[in-house]
Design a protein around this nucleic acid. Structure first.
Lengths: 209, 209
DNA sequence: TGGTGTGAATGCCTTCACAGCG
DNA sequence: CGCTGTGAAGGCATTCACACCA
């Protein structure tokens, strides 16, 4: 255990460690070693030991980690015992896909509201989620205790959407619009620029030929 | 100019530099300085100079960069003069959203085929893209000269989809399934694990309270 | 023997600082 | 004077290597 700043990559990996460890625990395999974990995820064994080491000494020398214990511990560290409410801004193709994305259901993250400006969509219920007018955002963010906003509106509308979210008190934003958002430092933004990721992949092809 | 290995982050940023520079060029603003560029993207001025420096000396001391020239140069470096063909595997909500995603249209990346196993979908045309049986993948990848595959199938089917793509000769894979894929070193994989990204955001909330 | 925990070493990327030049 | 290009410095994250322990 130590007090050093925890790398963002470490946090991110802890979530996939938890997935693997849960699998093992569900199969009633009681022990996992750092090398088994690493192999499973194409990571070095040292990486896993190091990452876990930021939070404590969970392993048993010569044996490995107890999957039952480590599962519980990680769930606690990562806040899996809590639920966070999420809003989706923009119910286009991508927004609708996210509403339907089964993957979110078991994460302790619940999409509790969607917002749009299109009167034809407002009032509908898509995949169990009601679509509200963007004008009601502030009210609903506070009444439904929403702390994460996902922006899937157009580039032009993204900054406005972000401003609304921030003013409403949302603390995290996941942004699918390909623009850099201007928000206060206290708000955490994660950019998910799909176009750029694809472009970056294509550069790999350019340099192969 | 130097021969050092170019960081992945640099490549990725070049694409957004190009966006900004194109905007300037389109507005007939002929010059941009590294500080203007950086401010626009919340990056330091040194970052931009450094990134560009990997590829040559494009700037004019005391003035800045010529937007017209730099636009052309970056387009060439990044392979924007070429087109790459893309296939989408799995036409669920997310797959369909990607087919519709207007953002890809202008990137020099074209989605030329989609694949699924569901007989109800096979043969349909969604957003101008025809959906084929996964059995025809090898044939169509080669006939349509596809070099990038996007996997939006379920976790269980993802490795199989990746194997098919690799055997068919695809060189880049963008993977939306939350599993780590096993592919040869020559194939470039980009994982887009939306669940994990959202989870990572929520960790930020856990630590605020 | 096998596997953890950890300081030390390495490597990568970003930032600094400034010489040099139009 | 302003801004680029760049060597040097700094910081962060991953990997190495091994002491130590069941």
């Amino acid at each position: 255990m130590n007090n050093k700043k925890i790398p963002e990559g470490t946090i991110s990996r802890l979530f996939i460690y938890l997935r693997v460890i849960s699998e093992f625990a569900n199969m009633n395999i009681r022990t996992i070693s750092s090398s088994e974990l690493g192999e499973r995820l194409s990571l070095s064994d040292a990486q896993g030991r190091n990452d876990l080491g930021y939070f404590g000494n969970f392993g048993v020398t010569g044996t490995g980690y107890d999957t039952f214990d480590l599962k519980k511990t990680l769930e606690k560290i990562l806040g899996k015992d809590k639920t966070w409410n999420v809003a989706v801004l923009g119910v286009g193709h991508l927004g609708a896909a996210l509403l339907a994305y089964a993957g979110f259901k078991n994460l302790g993250l619940e999409i509790v509201a969607a917002f749009d400006t299109n009167p034809k969509i407002i009032g509908q219920t898509i995949e169990d989620t009601k679509v509200y007018s963007i004008d009601d955002l502030t009210k609903i963010v506070s009444s439904k205790n929403i702390s994460i906003g996902i922006i899937t509106v157009s580039s032009g509308a993204a900054q406005g959407a972000a401003d609304l979210l921030v003013r409403a008190g949302v603390e995290c934003i996941m942004n699918f619009a390909p623009v850099s958002l201007n928000v206060p430092d206290e708000v955490k933004v994660k950019n998910m620029d799909l176009s750029r990721e694809l472009e970056t992949l294509s550069y790999f092809l350019v340099n192969k030929k």
